[in-house]
C-alpha cells in the first residue's frame, strides 16, 4: 500500500509568509510538446502552482486571448485525457510544483465525474478549477474530489456579496478571488474597490486566497500581493505564447522562444516578494 503524500497545493500554502505565483496556460497551445516545455519554464521562472487549461469550444468565462488559445489547441483535438497525460509526464520528470487543471464543466461531465477525479488524482494533479460550476451545483464534484484527495477550487467574485461567507467556509486548497467583473483578459486598470473585496474574502475563509482575472503587469502583481496569498496571471502569458507561436513550433527557435516567455514570467513572479 502506498502512502498518500500531502496534496501539493496544501504543501505550497503550508508557509503563508511567502506570496505564491500561479501562471495559467492552455494545454496544447500551440502543441502538447511545447506546453510540456513551457510548464517547466514557468516553474523555473518562479511558479509555485501551474494552472493548466483544458481547451473548450465555448469558454464563457474567457476573453478573446484564451478563447483563441482554446481554438488553437482544439485544432489538434486536445482533451482531458491529454491534459492528464501531460501531468503524468511532468510528474515523471520530477516536477514538484502544484498542478491544477482548469476545465469547463461539460467536458468533466462527459468524462464522468467519478472517473475524472480518480484519474486526476492518479495523474499526480492536485485540484481543478471549474469556472461554470458554482457552489450550489458542485456537490457531487466536491464529494468525488474529497474521496481522491484533490481539491475543487472555488471562485468568489466582487458580486458575490452575501455569498462570500458561504463560499469561503467550504473552500479548500485555495480560494480563487476574481479580481474584475467580466471575462479573463489582461486589463490596464483594476477595480478601485478590489482591496476591500479581498479583505472581506480573507475574513470569511481559512483557505489561502489567490487573486486573478485581468492581472497582466509586475506593477499590478506588486499592488495586489499584500492582499492575497497568491496571484494568478493567465491571459498576459497566453498572449506571449501566441506572439511566439511560430517560433515555438520551429525546432530551431523553440528553446529561444521558451526562454523569452520564461523571462516575461520571471518579471511577474519576482514582483511578488
Amino acid at each position: 500500500m502506498t502512502t498518500i503524500h500531502q496534496n501539493r497545493i496544501d504543501h505550497v500554502f503550508a508557509d503563508r509568509s511567502r506570496k505564491r505565483f500561479i501562471p495559467f496556460i492552455t494545454v496544447g497551445d500551440p502543441t502538447l510538446e511545447v506546453t510540456y516545455k513551457i510548464a517547466h519554464a514557468l516553474v523555473e521562472a518562479g511558479a509555485d502552482i501551474l494552472e493548466l487549461g483544458i481547451p473548450y469550444s465555448d469558454p464563457l468565462a474567457d476573453g478573446p486571448t484564451i478563447q483563441q488559445a482554446s481554438q488553437r489547441a482544439l485544432k489538434h483535438g486536445v482533451a482531458i485525457k491529454d491534459a492528464l497525460q501531460l501531468v503524468v509526464k511532468l510528474r515523471a520528470s520530477g516536477m514538484e510544483a502544484g498542478l491544477v487543471l482548469f476545465s469547463y464543466v461539460n467536458p468533466v461531465f462527459q468524462y464522468g465525474i467519478e472517473r475524472f477525479f480518480a484519474d486526476l488524482a492518479a495523474s499526480g494533479a492536485d485540484g481543478v478549477v471549474i469556472p461554470d460550476l458554482p457552489v450550489e451545483e458542485s456537490g457531487s464534484a466536491i464529494a468525488a474530489a474529497k474521496k481522491h484527495g484533490v481539491h475543487v477550487i472555488s471562485l468568489v467574485a466582487p458580486t458575490s456579496q452575501t455569498r462570500i461567507r458561504m463560499i469561503g467556509e467550504q473552500a479548500t486548497g485555495f480560494l480563487y478571488c476574481v479580481s474584475s467583473l467580466g471575462v479573463t483578459g489582461a486589463r490596464t486598470e483594476l477595480r478601485g474597490d478590489l482591496t476591500d473585496f479581498l479583505k472581506r474574502v480573507r475574513e470569511s475563509t481559512t483557505a489561502p486566497t489567490a487573486v486573478g482575472f485581468g492581472i497582466s503587469t509586475p506593477e499590478q502583481v506588486r499592488t495586489l500581493a499584500p492582499h492575497a496569498d497568491a496571484v494568478i496571471v493567465g491571459s498576459a502569458i497566453v498572449r506571449e505564447i501566441e506572439r511566439y507561436g511560430e517560433q515555438l513550433q520551429d525546432p530551431n527557435q523553440c528553446d529561444d522562444a521558451v526562454e523569452k516567455i520564461k523571462n516575461f514570467v520571471h518579471q511577474l513572479s519576482s514582483a511578488l516578494q
Binding site: 461554470d132 450550489e136 451545483e137 467574485a157 458580486t159 455569498r163 476574481v178
Partner: peptide, 20 residues
C-alpha cells in the same frame, strides 16, 4: 427551487453571475 426540471436545468454559470 434549484431550477431543475427533473435532472435538467440548474445554474451552471460563473460565480460573478450567481447573485444577479
Amino acid at each position: 427551487e434549484k431550477g431543475r426540471f427533473g435532472e435538467f436545468g440548474g445554474k451552471f454559470v460563473p460565480e460573478t453571475l450567481m447573485n444577479a
